[in-house]
C-alpha cells in the first residue's frame, strides 16, 4: 500500500465500528450528526421568534417529542465531542490550518458556492430521510434496518450518478 499520512482505512473502520458499538451498548442508539444541527436550528427559532415556534407545525411536533428542549439531546452532546475529537486528531497530526480545499481547476469562490449549495441539499435531505450518512446509513446498516440500506444505496447511488457532472470540482 502507498504511504499515507492518515490512519489505515481498515483500522479506522474497525475503530469507527467500536465507537458505534459503544454508542449502541451505552445509549441503545447509533451515531448521528444532522439531528444535532436540527436541534440548533429549532433552538435558534425558539429564541428568535418564540411566537412562531409555538404556532408552526414542525416546531410544535418537535416540542411534543422533546419535552426537555432541543439542546438537551444525546446527539448535541455527541457532536460537541466530535468537534473536540476532530480538533485533537488534527492537532496531533499537524493538520490545523484555515484553508479552502478545492481542485486546482476551480476557484475558491466556486468551491464555497458549491459547498453552501451542497449543504442546503444535504440539510434538507437529511431531514426528509430521517438521518444522514451517520444516523441513517451507517447506524441503520449496523442494526440491519431496511431503511438504513435503502438510505445508503440512495445516497451513494445518486452521488455516483451525478459525479460526472461536477468532476471538475474534484479531480
Amino acid at each position: 500500500m502507498k504511504k499515507t499520512k492518515y490512519l489505515n482505512p481498515y483500522v479506522g473502520g474497525v475503530l469507527l465500528g467500536l465507537v458505534l458499538l459503544a454508542a449502541n451498548f451505552i445509549a441503545g442508539r447509533g451515531l448521528g450528526a444532522s439531528g444535532a444541527l436540527k436541534s440548533v436550528v429549532v433552538e435558534a427559532v425558539d429564541v428568535i421568534t418564540p411566537k412562531h415556534a409555538e404556532n408552526a407545525a414542525f416546531y410544535k411536533e418537535y416540542a411534543d417529542k422533546h419535552p426537555d428542549g432541543p439542546m438537551k439531546s444525546w446527539l448535541v452532546f455527541e457532536m460537541l465531542g466530535v468537534v473536540v475529537g476532530g480538533f485533537l486528531s488534527g492537532a496531533i497530526a499537524g493538520r490545523l490550518k484555515f484553508k479552502v480545499e478545492h481542485s486546482p481547476k476551480i476557484t475558491s469562490k466556486r468551491r464555497l458556492v458549491f459547498a453552501v449549495l451542497g449543504g442546503i441539499l444535504f440539510g434538507f435531505g437529511s431531514q426528509m430521510g430521517r438521518g444522514c450518512t451517520s444516523g441513517s446509513a451507517l447506524s441503520g446498516m449496523a442494526v440491519l434496518s431496511v431503511g438504513g440500506f435503502i438510505s445508503t444505496a440512495a445516497i451513494f447511488g445518486t452521488a455516483y450518478a451525478l459525479a460526472y457532472f461536477v468532476r471538475k470540482n474534484w479531480i
Binding site: F114, L117, G118, G119, I120, L121, F122, G123, F124, G125, S126, M128, G129, C132, T133, S151, A154, I155, F156, G157, T158, A159, A161, L162, A163, V166, N169
Partner: peptide, 8 residues
C-alpha cells in the same frame, strides 16, 4: 437529495 448534496 443527500446524494446530490454530497457530490456537490
Amino acid at each position: 437529495i443527500m446524494g446530490a448534496g454530497f457530490i456537490m
